[in-house]
Design a protein around this nucleic acid. Structure first.
Lengths: 362, 362
DNA sequence: GCTATTACTGACATCGATGTCATGACATCG
DNA sequence: CGATGTCATGACATCGATGTCAGTAATAGC
């Protein structure tokens, strides 16, 4: 590899002058600069990041720890949008700031995290992002990075700064939108109880009902997702059956995520029900590949992973740069709007029209 | 940051001895080693990668250039499995070898590639992987990395080593499997003509037909995917309509990818056709989120991205280490098997049964 | 016309590790 | 018992850049 010394010799100047040309540090005579630049091109010189960052004590690196890249197929994937989108959003911000991101993948083995953190620290990352694959509590072994760490999609009990999805608000706005569209019997196939998002979303659902003066009916809310996907299908079939055989069945079914909604499409079709003419369906996540391409398109709630990643990145930058945090709270919530596609029928426009459709097809 | 000098002072030894403990280079007295290790823990010492790699001339870094992370929603996504799986496979191999991967994202801007390459070279990556988002020809500006570069999912005209999906074989085995299941009229909704995979897959389709002695009927093969997804939907509807209104319509429809198959599910349902009782459907990619969760499950062909990534990584390692390449060819094909799920009806078991089903529902 | 800046350049030390070489204390061998 | 080898350790140079400081020449200010 050629060094600035080679370049200096070639151009007949001192190494320091080459450095000045490279960094545009201090004034350099145009003729000198030209000579140096010619030499650089001629020798194909490329700066050594190692030498540079060693001297300047700045690595220009940000570490991201995630399981996104290797959430292996088959491993208990906790249903939801792939967290790679979070990484995406963060990387966008860091790239703008000329920071290189060093992405470390857990490969699904959480016990490898301390090792990964160590590697990142060896690279002298200036900050660290920990990205979880779903909203959860974690105990991140930050070892020496505690004060330049931001958690994304997770939180801990040490008030480490974190960025979380606003599950309550998301489900609230979805339910509110459904009510505005004339639905009052809103079925809800939920996540497993112990999923962190679950009580939050349920709270949002109930808030929307309460605001509209609709009584909460526990029979309409059934858990239909398990951590273990193996038995999930039967569970879903059963939950759906319970909803549809109620004496006063729902006119719309909210699903805990888009993947579940996709299955519900199939199950409803098996029962001879059309979406949305006979029954409306909504999801959660706005998992584009599903929501966009299902037919009809799936109404759902944006799980704002990209934004969360970007926010976390901005927050980390503020911390690194020693700027005062705007608020004093460690938790930052990011909410995503509902997206309305064909899967939800509006019953407000013309009730009579709806009834005639219903009569023809039930 | 503490250095080995600090550790040396704390432990009362020379820096070199600390280095020896760290690298387990040369024999160190157990008592000395203990002192050093204690000092390391006490001071929270972490090696500097920069200094290390500068001296040893080994970075332990591999660069990966991809658009995987930021194939932004909305940008003309060329339908297919997200290339993140390729990165995944490669990273698995590199992690085994204690190499850290530096993932550079094009952010969808191909013109940023030279800049990314430069950054990677500044980090003195020992090898470079370029990952494309679909099977295509590229002109990669390798600038100085030409001899430690492997292309994945793409190839160039300079015989750079590359790893590609075996599209011919994939479609061949799918069609062969369909024929074995009693299908002879096999509809095929293809990719756009200029997609590299298209002629290859068509060749596979025709080879299977030829081997079974079935005449090729051009009316059964219709392009239904565009590079621009905006008009794709109408195109697909029209293509499907043409297939279904043939005097002798197909008993199965092969789609260019799983996403298209998902849409076809919906369109077929609109026409009152049941999958697979009335018509079978097959996809391509084995995009798990779709293929697994559609109802019924989608029969498709594995696009072996994870394996391709791993193979490319292994190949790059061989190149870096100066080991002789096994073959002399620059191109390495990786084939993926068909996966049979519920969307394809076997007509071989009992033809009469099938006919009765058909009569009831047509 | 003399001082105060500014433009431009280079010598040298330094960042934090490791490679090379030297050295002393023992152990082993013939 | 002397020659040789191994263990254990440290002094010193070095990797490739940049920060500090110094110095010269040209320009500006009064």
């Amino acid at each position: 590899m050629t060094t600035i010394y080679d370049v200096a010799k070639e151009a007949g100047v001192s190494p320091k002058t080459v450095s000045r040309v490279l960094n545009d540090d201090a004034p350099v005579n145009v003729a000198t600069r030209a000579k140096v630049e010619t030499a650089i091109v001629k020798l194909g010189f490329v700066r050594s990041h190692a030498a540079r960052s060693m001297r300047s004590q700045r690595s220009g690196l940000i570490g991201i720890i995630t399981g996104a890249i290797s959430t292996s197929p088959g491993a208990g994937e906790p249903a939801g949008l792939p967290d790679i989108h979070i990484v995406q959003g963060a990387q966008r911000i860091f790239a703008q700031e000329n920071l290189t991101t060093l992405i470390s993948d857990t490969g699904g083995h959480l016990d490898r995290v301390p090792e990964l953190v160590r590697t990142l620290l060896e690279h002298r990352v200036e900050g660290l992002l920990y990205v979880a694959d779903h909203h959860q509590q974690v105990a991140f072994p930050a070892a020496g990075a505690r004060n330049r760490l931001v958690l994304v999609n997770c939180y801990d009990d040490e008030s480490t700064p974190c960025v979380l999805p606003d599950d309550e608000s998301g489900q609230y706005h979805l339910a509110k939108g459904l009510i505005e569209r004339g639905h009052t019997r809103i079925g809800y196939l939920t996540l497993a109880e112990r999923q962190r998002a679950q009580p939050l979303r349920l709270a949002g659902y109930r808030r929307a009902l309460a605001e509209a003066g609709i009584a909460f009916d526990p029979a309409l809310v059934i858990p239909a997702a398990l951590m273990d996907p193996a038995h999930e299908y039967d569970l879903l079939w059963d939950a759906l059956d319970r909803l549809l055989t109620l004496s006063e069945p729902p006119t719309v079914i909210c699903c805990a995520n888009d993947k579940m909604a996709m299955r519900v499409y199939g199950l409803l079709r098996d029962r001879g029900l059309r979406v949305p003419e006979d029954i409306s369906v909504a999801g959660y996540d706005d998992y584009r590949i599903i929501a966009d391409h299902l037919h009809p398109g799936l109404s759902t709630v944006v799980l704002p992973y990209e934004t969360m990643g970007a926010r976390a990145a901005q927050r980390l930058l503020r911390i690194i740069r020693g700027q005062q945090e705007p608020g004093t709270t460690s938790t930052e919530l990011v909410s995503g709007p509902p997206v309305w596609r064909g899967s939800v029928l509006s019953r407000t426009a013309n009730i009579l029209d709806f009834q005639s459709i219903g009569r023809n097809n039930t």
